[in-house]
Amino acid sequence: MKVSVERNDDIKIIALDGQLDVSTSDLVREEVLSLFEDKPTIIFMEKCSYVSSSGLRSLLIMAKTAKAKGMKLVFAAPIAEVIDVFEMTGFIKMLKCVPTIEDAEKALS
C-alpha cells in the first residue's frame, strides 16, 4: 500500500492507495501517524480497495491517536465495500467517515 500526502496547508490530506491488511497495516499505520501534525487531517480512502481485520485496527488507532492529540481526523470517500465492513462490524461508530473530500473539508472547518 502506498501512503502519500496530497495536500498540506491548513488541512492535510493523506491518501491511501492499495490494500490495508496484515502485510501492510502496521507499516501504513506507523507512516500515517508519523505524518500527523497539529492540524485537521483527512485520510483519503478512495483508492483503498480492501480493509481486513488488522486494517480496521490500524484505522482505529489512527482515530484514537488523533483524538488524544486533540487533532480533528476524518476518513473520506471509502469505497462501498469498505463502508460495508465498517457498518457490519460496528467500527463505523468509531471512525468518522464522509463520502467525499468536500464533505470532509466541511466537517473539519
Partner: peptide, 16 residues
C-alpha cells in the same frame, strides 16, 4: 455474520 465472508464475525458479534 454479515461480515462472515471476510471472517470478521468476532468483531461483529462483540459489537452487538
Amino acid at each position: 455474520a454479515a461480515s462472515g465472508k471476510y471472517s470478521m464475525q468476532i468483531d461483529e458479534f462483540k459489537n452487538l
